[in-house]
Design a protein around this nucleic acid. Structure first.
Length: 208
DNA sequence: CTCGAGATGCCCT
DNA sequence: GGGCATCTCGAGC
């Protein structure tokens, strides 16, 4: 597992659509104070500058500022008031493109992922509910789920860099897989664009 | 398995 | 105030 971090040049040397595909098979690692968790990226989506679904499609705003950083910058945002999405900034600084990570195949720290995925009721119920046991394939199957399982938080990690912090990528152990390309999930505008990439027949993908 | 409803906070118009 | 790059739960098949 412990290989070397992918360097800045990896993020700089591909356009966004190519990067979205090249990210498949890479391992996402978070060395947190609670422990290490990691997983292989199996599903991504690209968001381009001239794409109405992209947060940078309209004016540059405070929220989307990290998207205009160097490629390899982390962009985490809050969605639906309670979930967060993890993105990797792409293209070149100042453009505003990124790749959403939609699913991981867990490789390390599965117990910690289980703990992080537990839902804490706002008002504690007594007696306390027993812990849920998630199937391994459910731990990181979806953008909100993987952020929670990996312990990623926008107040801590937004705008950090993947080459200089506790969250980073390592190169694929294998590229012996086929890639399927489809339209993106959960959006209305730009829904027809074929910007979703996933590893064919991989059971950890959010939707086949 | 599928479906529908509700949760919940922030950004931007 | 509208609208989210989502998830969980419960009901029903």
């Amino acid at each position: 597992m412990q290989e070397s971090k992918l360097p800045l040049s990896f993020y700089q040397s591909h356009d966004t659509l190519t990067l979205a595909e090249k990210l498949l098979g890479c391992e996402l690692v978070h060395e947190s104070p609670e422990g290490i968790t990691s997983g292989i990226i199996v599903e991504t989506e690209a968001y381009l500058r001239d794409d109405p679904a992209c947060h940078a499609f309209n004016r540059r705003t405070p929220r989307t500022e990290p998207m205009y950083g160097e490629p390899g910058t982390i962009y985490v945002y809050l969605i639906y008031g309670m979930y967060q999405c993890f993105n990797i900034v792409s293209n070149v600084a100042g453009v505003g493109e990124a790749v959403l990570i939609r699913a991981l195949q867990p490789t390390a720290g599965l117990d910690l992922m289980q703990l992080r995925r537990q839902v804490i009721p706002k008002i504690p119920v007594l007696p306390a509910k027993p812990q849920k046991e998630f199937a391994v394939k459910e731990l990181c199957r979806g953008p909100g789920k993987l952020v929670k399982a990996m312990g990623i938080d926008r107040t801590l990690h937004n705008n950090l860099t993947l080459t200089d912090g506790p969250i980073y990528l390592t190169a694929p152990a294998t590229t012996d897989f086929e890639v399927t390309i489809t339209t993106r999930i959960g959006i209305n505008v730009g829904a027809a664009l074929p910007y979703r990439f996933f590893i064919k027949n991989n059971p950890f993908v959010s939707k086949g």
